[in-house]
Every structure is written in C-alpha cells, then in structure tokens.
Design a protein around this nucleic acid. Structure first.
Length: 339
DNA sequence: AAGCTGATCAACCGCGCACTG
DNA sequence: TCAGTGCGCGGTTGATCAGCT
C-alpha cells in the first residue's frame, strides 16, 4: 500500500541511491519543489512525493547541519522539550540546520536515556518518585559516570542561600538569612551541602519565593517528603508550566541586559521577546532574567495565575528560554534527595 | 572470524489539518 | 457544508553499524 498521493503509480521504497539524490537535488535547486506530489514526475524519480519531500527536508537541503549535536544544542532540546513535549518540528525550529527527525532520533537514542538515568521522567522532566526510580535505573542501563550532567539549577555564589522556586520541578533552597536567624526556614540545612554548579546562573530563570523564607507561610517543602510529594503530584499531571511566567505579578521586576529593575510589564516582555526573535538569535532571551521583587510573596498567585490547560503554545514557543530554564539534574539524586 | 546485541538513523506509515472546488 | 487532495507531523520500523563475547 502506497501513499494516497501516489497510489496510481508503482513507487520505489527504501534507501535512496546517489543517482536519485542527484536527480532530486538538481530538480529542486533549479525549479523549487512547488507541489511535492508532482516533484517525482518532473524529476524523473519513481518515488512518491512524500518520500521526495522527506528526503529533501531531512537529508538533501543545503542548509542542513550534519554531525553530532553540540552540548548547547542538547540543552536547548531538553529545555524546549520540557515545555513543548514531543513537538519535534517546533523544537527543531530552535536549532538551525537540524530537522525534526534528527532531533527526535537524538532524543530517543540519547537524551531520553540520560534523563532516565538521572531519575527524571523524560516526558514530564520531573523527578521520578523514589520508589519508581530504582526500576527506571535498572531499566535504563546507562552508566552514570559516562553521563554529561545536565543542570536543572545553575547557581553562582551570589545566589547560594536564597530561596528559589522552579516550576516544575519545584525546588526550594534555603533563605538568604543567616542560619542563626529565627526566620530561617526549616528547609535544607546548609546551602553548601548542595552540589550545585557555580557557573552560568545567568542562564537560569528562577522564582524567588519569599514565602519560603517565612516558616509561618511556608506551606511548601517543610521537609523532603513534601518536596517529593510536590514533585510526585506535579509529575502525575500531564501539563507543565510553560515558562514560570505565571509566577510573576505586578510586583515583579523585569531585567534585560540594558535594563534593570523596571516594573514588570507583560507587554514589554513580549515586545522584547519579539524583537529578539526578529533578530533571529538562537538563544532568544537567554540573557534575560526575571527578577521577582521579594518584598511581596508571589506564591499566593501561583495557582491562579498559571492555568496549565489554557496557555498559548504559540506564545510559549515564541518566548522560550533556550538554556534558561531548569537545569542540572546531574546531581538531582544527590540533591536529594539525600535527606 | 562469527555471532549476538544494542545503538543509531533514514525512511515509512498513518493521522490530522488546511485548502480548494 | 462536504468530499477530495496535499502537506506536515509524530510514532514506528528496519537496515546498518559498532562493540562485545
């Protein structure tokens, strides 16, 4: 059974020969593909139009980048996948020269296993509950030592000790208050116990959670089991928080490279994002940080401001933060989840 | 050297959407 | 409004390769 577009004629299948490739390239470079269904006829190929299209898009296009994925590309895939899921074509748009097929294959053959080896659910990017993690680890027979660690959180020393929240997975770190302070939340005991990388926090978007500094308000994460419970409940949902923007409110501040501490303005954010998009920068807003004014709690608005069922995918896609979202699960197990 | 196994990747398949008459 | 057609996308398959025994 052939494709609907080429049922009438007998078409060749399987691997393309160099001669076929040459015919297709010659035809498309001189005439363009126009209607794909008519390409094989005019190009002198016994293939269906669909097959020609696929061959051109995935293999013959001159702008294609061949070779293995760079670490940066890998991180972009992870970041974008976390938000968009298996929308390979959308993900590939963030990787110039890469095809959806290539990205999909790379994900399935490589990234997926790495995430699983690190105790992450490749679908949700959340931690797999501890009782299921062992089974996952056994299932994916990948050597931890050979893994290039991902970063779910990159912090530098300036940020150590602050309470932050990432959603999802949600993670709260201790407050900036000295350990002697009575306001020290009963969360993690010391920040230095966290084996977090100390570089490139500029690529990490974080949400500061003032409530976490306040034991009275701190309904989240009083202990690890709560964290894990949160993660578990989060991972049981099929929805993901696309950007974390939902945590922002009017008391939030927005900072770009040239602009520090302006009041949060969604329209302005969108404007900046669009302008950056127009400049076709691969790392659209990598350098952008959301700085939350921690004079007011933002947690109260979390639930109301983020509707997992109604966010605009196009908007999300246009405002992605490649390399700027949750990072580093390399040490997630350690982080752990060792309490 | 031969056989086995897992990884990789090119290509196919089927579905859904958009467009057109 | 509806059927037909083409295209794009995501899931899956199968051929090939590399590493191991």
């Amino acid at each position: 059974m052939g494709h609907r577009c080429c049922n009438k004629q007998k078409v060749k299948r399987g691997l393309w020969s160099p001669e076929e490739d040459e015919k297709l390239v010659n035809y498309i470079t001189t005439h363009g593909h126009g209607s794909w269904s008519s390409v094989p006829k005019f190009a002198g190929l016994k293939r269906c139009g669909k097959s020609c299209r696929l061959r051109w898009i995935n293999y013959l296009r001159p702008e294609l980048k061949r070779g293995s994925f760079s670490a940066e590309e890998e991180q972009i895939i992870i970041d974008v996948h976390r938000i968009l899921g298996n929308r390979w074509a959308q993900i590939a748009k963030h990787l110039p020269g890469r095809t959806d097929n290539e990205v999909k294959n790379f994900w399935n053959s490589c990234i997926k296993k790495k995430l699983m080896a690190q105790g992450l659910d490749p679908k949700t990017h959340n931690l797999i509950p501890s009782n299921q993690r062992a089974a996952h680890k056994a299932a994916c027979n990948v050597s931890q030592s050979s893994q290039q660690p991902f970063s779910i959180i990159n912090l530098d020393s300036k940020m150590k000790g602050y309470s932050m929240e990432i959603n999802p997975p949600i993670l709260t770190l201790p407050s900036p208050y000295p350990s002697s302070s009575s306001t020290q939340p009963p969360l993690l005991q010391t920040t230095t116990s966290l084996p977090l990388p100390t570089s490139s926090y500029q690529n990490t978007s974080v949400i500061w959670n003032e409530n976490a500094q306040n034991p009275q308000n701190s309904s989240i994460f009083p202990c690890l089991s709560s964290i894990e419970n949160t993660l578990i409940s989060s991972s049981s949902s099929t929805s993901v928080n696309p950007t974390g923007f939902g945590l922002l409110n009017e008391n939030s501040f927005w900072r770009t490279n040239n602009n520090i501490g302006e009041p949060f303005d969604a329209a302005k954010i969108f404007e900046v994002m669009q302008s950056q998009d127009q400049e076709n920068q691969p790392n659209k807003i990598c350098d952008t940080q959301m700085i939350i004014d921690n004079t007011k709690g933002v947690h109260d608005n979390m639930d109301a401001s983020f509707d997992t069922t109604s966010y605009d995918l196009e908007f999300v896609d246009s405002t992605l933060l490649p390399g700027s979202m949750c990072r580093d699960l390399s040490s997630m197990d350690d982080l752990a989840w060792n309490f």
